[in-house]
Structures are given as C-alpha cells and as structure tokens.
Simulated assay, not measured.
Amino acid sequence: MTENAIEIAPDSALIVIDVQKGFDDPSFWGPRNNPAAEENIAALMDAWQESGRPVVLVRHASRRPGSVLAPDQPGHAFKDFVAGRLGKESLLVTKTVNSSFYGTPDLGEWLAGRGIRQLVVTGIQTNMCVETTARMAGNLGYEVLVPLDATHTFDLTGPVGLTLSADQLSAATAVNLQGGDFAQVVTTAAVLAATKPA
C-alpha cells in the first residue's frame, strides 16, 4: 500500500480507545491479530507527549453481566504501558457504548473548546469502538486518521455461523473507513514521521 504524505496538526488529538487489561483474556475474546498494536500505540503516545499535543484516553465501562471490562473487574484497568504514560494534560473519557463521543466528560465539547479539528484514532477493537468512533468523527466534520497497525481486534462470529478472522475484520474496517470517506487509513510509521520537527 502506497501512502500519501500526511500532515499532523500542532493540536492534533491522539485518541487511545479501550486499551484495557480485560482484552488480554483470550478465553473471553478468542484469537486476536496484530501483536504489534501495543508497541505502536505506545510510540504514538510518546510522540504526542513529546510534542505537547493532546492525548485522550478512553475507557470502556461495560454494563454486560460477566464482562471482563466491567468497572468492578481487574480487566477494567488500563494496560500498564498506557497507565505509565498518563500525563497531567491527558483527558480521560469513560463510556458504556462503542462511540467515544458518548462518554463522560463529553469528548466533542472538549475538542470544540480547544478548536481541535484533527483526530488520530487508535486502540481496541479495530472494528468496534475504533471504527465507530472514527465514523462518528468523520460525520461530525473532523479530519480523521486511523493508523490501522495501532489497533487490533478478535475473530468474530455473526449470523448463521459466519465467522471472520481478526485480519479480515481489520481489512473490512480499512475499506469501510477510507472507502466511505470517514477517515484516512495510515500507518504508525507515517504518523510518527509527520510528527517529527522539520
């Protein structure tokens, strides 16, 4: 895949979605893809903090009985590499649905108050909360970049036993987002290169 050059705005917000310990439980989720996702998310968080750009951390508080992401479960906590990178300027949003725009505090209001118009969306799961947040952001008029290799997901079974692998679901997300003009799908390397001083 050939990438066009990208520009990262000085106030571009990095949205890190649901990087929680509960997603490390394969007995609950099944097979995952992209083992490099966490390393890429960490590199993006470091680049954002080093450049003084805003970081938004989103955490899912599941209402589903027995969920490993429920607020009273150990899996609700951020993975250690995220918790260790929490900055004083980071915004923490808690949500109970797929879109990060339906959480507390209100993400749209926070972005509008700072005049932020560009979002880089990362996290878990690619085809669930990452895609939903990116689609909604695109509909709301934000410029959205999704470094797909800074996300991951799990195999999923749908209607009449149809199962798609995590890689197939990630590919579908890439096509949905870019083909539908919701977001530009990019790589972590391209984003990092664009955040370096000239």
Results as ranks from 00 to 15, higher is better:
residue 1 M to S: 13
residue 5 A to V: 13
residue 7 E to V: 13
residue 7 E to T: 13
residue 7 E to L: 12
residue 9 A to C: 04
residue 9 A to W: 04
residue 10 P to L: 02
residue 13 A to Q: 02
residue 14 L to I: 03
residue 17 I to R: 14
residue 21 K to N: 10
residue 21 K to C: 04
residue 23 F to P: 07
residue 24 D to C: 07
residue 26 P to E: 14
residue 26 P to N: 12
residue 27 S to C: 06
residue 29 W to F: 15
residue 30 G to E: 14
residue 31 P to E: 07
residue 32 R to C: 07
residue 37 A to P: 02
residue 38 E to A: 15
residue 41 I to N: 06
residue 41 I to G: 05
residue 42 A to N: 07
residue 47 A to E: 07
residue 50 E to W: 00
residue 51 S to Y: 00
residue 52 G to Y: 00
residue 52 G to Q: 00
residue 53 R to L: 00
residue 55 V to H: 02
residue 55 V to Y: 02
residue 55 V to R: 15
residue 56 V to E: 06
residue 58 V to C: 10
residue 59 R to H: 01
residue 59 R to N: 12
residue 59 R to F: 00
residue 60 H to T: 10
residue 61 A to N: 12
residue 61 A to S: 15
residue 62 S to P: 07
residue 62 S to C: 12
residue 63 R to V: 09
residue 63 R to F: 03
residue 67 S to F: 11
residue 69 L to H: 08
residue 69 L to Y: 09
residue 70 A to C: 01
residue 70 A to M: 03
residue 74 P to Y: 11
residue 74 P to F: 13
residue 75 G to I: 10
residue 79 K to F: 00
residue 80 D to M: 04
residue 81 F to T: 04
residue 84 G to Y: 01
residue 86 L to N: 09
residue 86 L to S: 13
residue 87 G to E: 03
residue 87 G to S: 13
residue 88 K to V: 09
residue 88 K to N: 12
residue 90 S to C: 15
residue 91 L to P: 02
residue 96 T to A: 12
residue 100 S to M: 11
residue 101 F to T: 14
residue 102 Y to S: 11
residue 103 G to W: 09
residue 105 P to Y: 06
residue 107 L to R: 06
residue 108 G to M: 08
residue 110 W to N: 04
residue 111 L to C: 05
residue 115 G to W: 07
residue 116 I to D: 01
residue 118 Q to R: 02
residue 119 L to F: 01
residue 120 V to T: 14
residue 120 V to K: 03
residue 123 G to L: 08
residue 123 G to W: 03
residue 126 T to P: 00
residue 129 C to N: 01
residue 130 V to M: 05
residue 130 V to N: 05
residue 132 T to F: 00
residue 133 T to G: 08
residue 134 A to D: 04
residue 137 A to F: 00
residue 138 G to L: 00
residue 138 G to C: 01
residue 138 G to A: 03
residue 138 G to Y: 00
residue 139 N to F: 07
residue 139 N to I: 03
residue 140 L to S: 10
residue 141 G to Q: 07
residue 141 G to L: 06
residue 143 E to F: 01
residue 143 E to L: 07
residue 146 V to H: 07
residue 147 P to G: 04
residue 148 L to Q: 11
residue 150 A to L: 02
residue 150 A to S: 12
residue 150 A to R: 03
residue 151 T to P: 06
residue 152 H to T: 13
residue 153 T to K: 05
residue 154 F to L: 07
residue 155 D to K: 05
residue 156 L to F: 14
residue 157 T to D: 06
residue 158 G to H: 11
residue 160 V to C: 08
residue 161 G to F: 08
residue 161 G to L: 10
residue 162 L to A: 11
residue 163 T to C: 05
residue 163 T to S: 10
residue 163 T to V: 05
residue 164 L to I: 04
residue 165 S to D: 03
residue 166 A to M: 02
residue 166 A to G: 07
residue 169 L to S: 02
residue 169 L to M: 11
residue 175 V to Q: 13
residue 175 V to S: 14
residue 178 Q to F: 04
residue 178 Q to S: 12
residue 179 G to V: 14
residue 180 G to Y: 08
residue 183 A to R: 10
residue 184 Q to G: 10
residue 188 T to P: 01
residue 189 A to Y: 05
residue 190 A to F: 07
residue 191 V to H: 06
residue 192 L to Q: 09
residue 193 A to S: 15
residue 194 A to M: 11
residue 194 A to N: 10
residue 196 K to R: 15
residue 198 A to D: 10
residue 198 A to Q: 13
residue 198 A to S: 13
